[in-house]
């Protein structure tokens, strides 16, 4: 039983961290585009902004479980299988990217518009403003958002059991719920609680540590 839980823990961490990494990459890009192309942004392109915003909203409205099943053919196309933790990464990334895009968007929008204006007045290009002003100034908020994203993806990953995705959530349902082995259920849930606590705490501390406004 112990080995099984360790294996589940590893699979969960693998799915969560790998998905978070990819989803954050895509989400950050989309978030930046959303902010930059917005009306009054650095490079307003209304059509692109509206379209992207609509796609993000659509993707976010689909319940994860339905999305997970609906994109099975796409998953097979990408990773060659629909079973196991790696196959689970695909729907996790698809489902969380738009969520992360909105988080990044709201973090970047917190950056004082006056500071952006000051950078423009110094002759900074939109690209320089993105990586020298927007991202560094929003860093504490982005880190908090990353912690929230990781936790959300962790909880999504618990639904992997439905499609044979394995991991802790799968164990809790298969052994703990279907087989009435409440000890396994309790242990897995306890481990998940601990992981969430650690992620949240590390994110918050890191954000505070890196926020120069508090020093």
């Amino acid at each position: 039983m112990f080995g099984m839980i360790i294996k589940g823990l590893w699979e969960t961490l693998y799915m969560t961290l790998f998905s978070t990494f990819l989803a954050y990459l895509f989400g950050m890009l989309i978030g930046i585009v959303l902010v930059v192309t917005d009306k009054g942004g650095l490079f307003p392109v209304a059509a692109l902004n509206k379209t992207l915003g609509l796609i993000v909203n659509l993707a976010r409205s689909v319940p994860f479980l339905i999305l997970l099943i609906a994109i099975l053919p796409f998953t097979r196309l990408v990773v060659g299988t629909t079973i196991g933790p790696t196959a689970m990464v695909v729907p996790l990334v698809v489902a969380s990217t738009p969520f992360i895009a909105r988080l990044v968007e709201s973090s970047l929008k917190e950056v004082d518009s006056g500071v952006i204006e000051a950078a423009s007045s110094m002759g900074a290009s939109p690209l320089q403003i993105i990586y020298k002003v927007l991202l560094p100034e929003a860093r504490p908020s982005l880190i908090l958002g990353a912690a929230i994203s990781t936790i959300t993806i962790l909880s999504y990953s618990a639904m992997a059991g439905i499609v044979g995705g394995r991991g802790l959530g799968d164990l809790a349902i298969r052994y703990g719920y279907y087989r009435y082995q409440s000890d396994i259920m309790l242990i897995t849930v306890a481990i998940l609680v601990i992981i969430v606590q650690i992620l949240q705490e590390v994110g918050a501390r890191l954000a505070r540590f890196l926020d120069k406004r508090l020093k």
């Binding site: 004082d112 006056g114 204006e117 007045s121 110094m122 002759g123 560094p136 120069k212």
Partner: peptide, 22 residues
């Protein structure tokens, strides 16, 4: 235009400093 702006400095009511930089 960006080059011209480098020859025209600007200061503001709210200072607009980068808060995450020394």
């Amino acid at each position: 235009l960006y080059q011209a702006r480098q020859s025209i400095g600007m200061i503001f009511q709210q200072f607009n400093l980068l808060m995450q930089r020394t």
